[in-house]
Computed example of a mutant assay.
Amino acid sequence: MPKINGNEIRPSNILEHQGGLWVAVKVDHVKPGKGGAFAQVEMKNIRTGTKLNERFRSADKVERVRLEQKDQQFLYESDGMLVFMDTDTYEQVEIPADILGERRPFLQDGMTVVVEYYDAEALSAQLPQKVTCTVTETEPVVKGQTAANSFKPAMLDNGVRVMIPPFVGEGEKIIVNTETMEYSERA
């Protein structure tokens, strides 16, 4: 694995530190009046979710971890485990459902997801950025309500509540951004 200097750490880098895998959440480069410059790094443990603040001087060497990314197709859910199929080898793997966190409702049958592996352990999964959903319930359209920034609450077919523009009604398909969990456009 490549070692990098402490001043080369960037947000979203995955580091091996104190025997665990950490993702750099926030990096501030500090140049104090006295002494040498250093990087103040806020890190989050990938497995446990605990946070840690560390200082790395430019002379410090840190192990940077490269994760292997694989496209995998979602098949079904069973006992809190998501079953995916590797699109290259057709091998099936089970991954805990909580790996997706609050984005879990946007996972649809047959959807291709990018799963990141460290050795043989799945660490994270990324859904496509935009997903098509159907509006199941919302308030009726109010005539004359055309303000550019007015939104109304809506319930989607997957049980997620989002704010949508007033011109979108029940039964319509919309595209939702899975990163921000907000309405993007009509489908």
Score class of each variant (00 low, 15 high):
95 I>K: 01
73 Q>W: 00
97 A>C: 14
128 P>H: 05
126 Q>E: 02
117 Y>N: 01
70 K>H: 10
128 P>A: 04
125 A>T: 14
81 M>W: 05
100 L>T: 07
129 Q>Y: 11
96 P>W: 07
94 E>T: 15
108 Q>F: 11
111 M>W: 13
76 Y>L: 05
91 E>K: 13
93 V>S: 14
72 Q>V: 13
92 Q>V: 01
68 E>H: 01
94 E>V: 09
123 L>Y: 11
96 P>N: 02
88 D>S: 14
86 D>S: 01
110 G>T: 01
98 D>S: 06
116 E>Y: 15
117 Y>M: 02
97 A>R: 13
117 Y>A: 03
108 Q>K: 00
104 R>K: 13
100 L>N: 08
115 V>G: 11
121 E>W: 10
126 Q>T: 01
110 G>S: 10
87 T>S: 03
123 L>Q: 03
116 E>S: 15
81 M>A: 15
95 I>M: 03
79 D>N: 13
86 D>H: 00
110 G>R: 04
85 M>N: 02
124 S>H: 14
111 M>C: 03
108 Q>P: 01
73 Q>K: 08
67 L>S: 05
106 F>M: 08
65 V>N: 14
101 G>Q: 03
79 D>L: 04
98 D>M: 05
68 E>T: 11
96 P>F: 03
88 D>A: 13
118 Y>A: 08
90 Y>W: 07
113 V>K: 10
73 Q>F: 01
127 L>G: 06
103 R>P: 05
91 E>I: 02
91 E>H: 04
80 G>P: 06
115 V>C: 04
84 F>V: 14
85 M>C: 09
106 F>C: 10
74 F>E: 09
